[in-house]
Design a protein around this nucleic acid. Sequence first.
DNA 1: CGCGGGTCTCGTACAGCGTTCGAGTTCACT
DNA 2: AGTGAACTCGAACGCTGTACGAGACCCGCG
Lengths: 244, 244
Amino acid sequence: MCESFYAEGVTTKQFTSVWAREPRQSRPQGQGLTREQIVKAALELLDADGLDALSMRKLGAKLGAGATSLYWHVANKDELLELAFDEIWGEVPDLDVEVVGWKDAASAFAHGVRQAILAHPWAGNLIGRMPAIGPKSLRAGDMLRTALRLAGFRGMDQDYAGSAITAYVMGATIPEVAWRALSQSGSYDAASMREVVRKAAAGYPELIARADEYARHDERTLRAVNFDFGLLCVLDGLERRLGA
Amino acid sequence: MCESFYAEGVTTKQFTSVWAREPRQSRPQGQGLTREQIVKAALELLDADGLDALSMRKLGAKLGAGATSLYWHVANKDELLELAFDEIWGEVPDLDVEVVGWKDAASAFAHGVRQAILAHPWAGNLIGRMPAIGPKSLRAGDMLRTALRLAGFRGMDQDYAGSAITAYVMGATIPEVAWRALSQSGSYDAASMREVVRKAAAGYPELIARADEYARHDERTLRAVNFDFGLLCVLDGLERRLGA
DNA sequence: CGCGGGTCTCGTACAGCGTTCGAGTTCACT
DNA sequence: AGTGAACTCGAACGCTGTACGAGACCCGCG
């Protein structure tokens, strides 16, 4: 259903997004549903039980309302997810680029995005399924953009540099989210998983050796080091392009 | 449903994967379904109509079989997707690292993965939703690993470097797939989309200016240049870490 | 007061989904 | 001929997103 954003049929479809439409202004009366309430409740459900656990019926029930009542305030489930998704971008810090310098600002952006997604794993599954053009997402992107301008990137290069950073962050975080969901809170059978990987990787002894080495360290810090390693590479690479 | 891989309940669940289980050996008789047939048909449906268009019923119908017949050959839809997903990795080239050198090998890996995903957009939505531990995926990963070993990375750094490259490639390609599905083959209303973006980005004139500049060039080549820019950054950054 | 007419809720219904179950068929082998 | 494994599949369950239309509430106007 999320794929409806990227229409595949032969017929020409209208491209839409919540952000392109004025929200229904609610009557000042206190009782009844509000878009904000709905999004808030959706976020709670998503954080608690994950993406697949959010259904319009459950959400309605949580709000003490009928499932179809939600459709007055929100066009469809995709738009609701778009709204919820944007909220997350509010968690990435918005620093004063002039003060901290471009590299620290970019680094803060990267770590902020990573933290936000790790805190809301369901968001990882939404990346690339809907346009990220909500206000909070735009604001976060704007900080990165000005940071790169301060660094010296102009025109298309400014955009390319931003893309490189976000691409790395997304690509690093999405699998990490998946892994965490698996390994944290003991809600999986560690032994069976180990066995699966071991069996699948048979024939690549080097891979198994590496996996064993992984197992000897704390996973969280290992992932963090891994992330910083790559981020440093990207930033170094960007810096080098500035000199050229 | 795909989320079942990353169990979220309180109860301990078994982690499973197709690759951990011996496939049902088929009777030598020619007639009847085969796992290979099923996966092949699934790939065709996926390539033709996208991820959401693949249902067990449709797949069964395409094979002239009942939907539930498939469940003899495949445990569930997730495992089927796992099988289909791995096929794609067969499209990334497997070069002789010693001959082409580490940088070209890594670059070929990156471009190969990008091309493979662009050719099968549905695969983009699967990244991070299931473990990529199929044989073809492992083989592709192995080439990258040996390339980085040749470069001089050892131990954990070898793994970190590989993660950095794949993270960038995934993160760059996933949004690109989404964009392409939108913009290619004229199956969307360009004008309305432009309007949506313009409306959403109001307040960020710099962003709109950049979008307009984007519109003046050919999109495909622009994306390709964008990708190469970032890839070069990552590779440069890795090289610099070698020197240190 | 009455009476539109917007705002908002929601029961019902529909088409589709993944998957379970168990009955049924086919076939190789003794 | 008989047995059991390999395989197919119709029916059913519980779930999904959402279209539709009937109703409820409330405000402003005549």
